[in-house]
């Protein structure tokens, strides 16, 4: 058994597990997109990042789906840095693929209220689930990643019709972009306004979210609201000075 410190709590986990598995075992929800229990972890979407390291100067963010548990590791799954990063990643995702309900739901869940990039209409977020599904579960290896950087795409070798593809449809089944389509994305925010939108108000007061209820239980909502209002009045006054 390996000893970890998970969000300030000392826990024990089986060796060989990843941080994501450990966190989920202890009921801490971490958003993922390119992770599936039945497939090998890849680490493409970066949503599952957590902050590791005891020294705040030297802590770094790693994908919990691929990082193995280590003895004595200090992990924070909902620190300010992590939440900010996740929100930006979701903003990038919504801007790339606004018609995916999975992604729009993630946006609501993480409290993303604005998308500041020009929307495109990609069908693929390059999470790699389909390639792993095809290789690991269906043992066909018909599709894979091709090209580099922004040219990266998923296709058969040399874009030729595949001999080994059995048209089983597993790739379509597993794809988060095609799974559920959203009818709602509204220009100019690119966000769908049909789903609930709650964020972590306690982050205004603390470095870590105080609980991991999903959606947030808003236990300190009232106090946070008052503090926010006080701040708004102050900036209004400053602007008036000129």
């Amino acid at each position: 058994m390996v000893n970890l410190r998970l969000n300030g709590v000392d826990v024990q986990v089986e060796e060989g597990q990843t941080l994501l598995e450990a966190a989920r075992f202890y009921g801490i929800p971490i958003p993922t997109l390119c992770y599936h229990e039945g497939l090998s972890p890849y680490g493409a979407c970066r949503l599952c990042v957590v902050e590791i390291g005891s020294d705040p100067q030297k802590s770094r963010l790693v994908t919990s789906c691929t990082y193995p548990v280590e003895e004595g590791l200090e992990v924070r799954t909902h620190s300010t840095r992590v939440i900010k990063a996740r929100k930006m990643l979701v903003e990038l995702l919504v801007a790339a693929c606004p018609s995916s309900k999975t992604i729009q739901d993630l946006a609501s869940q993480l409290g993303v209220t604005k998308v500041r990039f020009k929307p495109r209409n990609d069908d693929c977020i390059l999470c790699g689930l389909c390639t792993r599904m095809c290789e690991e579960q269906m043992a066909a290896k018909a599709i894979g990643f091709v090209n580099r950087g922004v040219e990266r795409k998923i296709t058969t070798p040399f874009d030729i019709k595949s001999d080994v593809c059995r048209t089983c449809g597993a790739c379509i089944y597993i794809c988060p972009a095609c799974q559920l389509r959203c009818q709602g994305p509204e220009p100019p925010t690119t966000l769908c306004s049909g789903c609930l939108n709650l964020s972590y108000p306690c982050l205004d007061l603390y470095e870590d979210a105080q609980c991991y209820m999903d959606p947030c239980a808003a236990c300190l909502l009232k106090e946070a609201e008052e503090k926010k209002q006080k701040r708004e009045v102050k900036t209004e006054n400053e602007n008036k000075e000129f």
Partner: peptide, 15 residues
């Protein structure tokens, strides 16, 4: 860097 990124990570490629 946009040309040379391998493209795996959403943050690097899209960012």
């Amino acid at each position: 860097l946009q040309d040379e990124s391998c493209g795996k990570c959403l943050s690097c490629r899209e960012g």
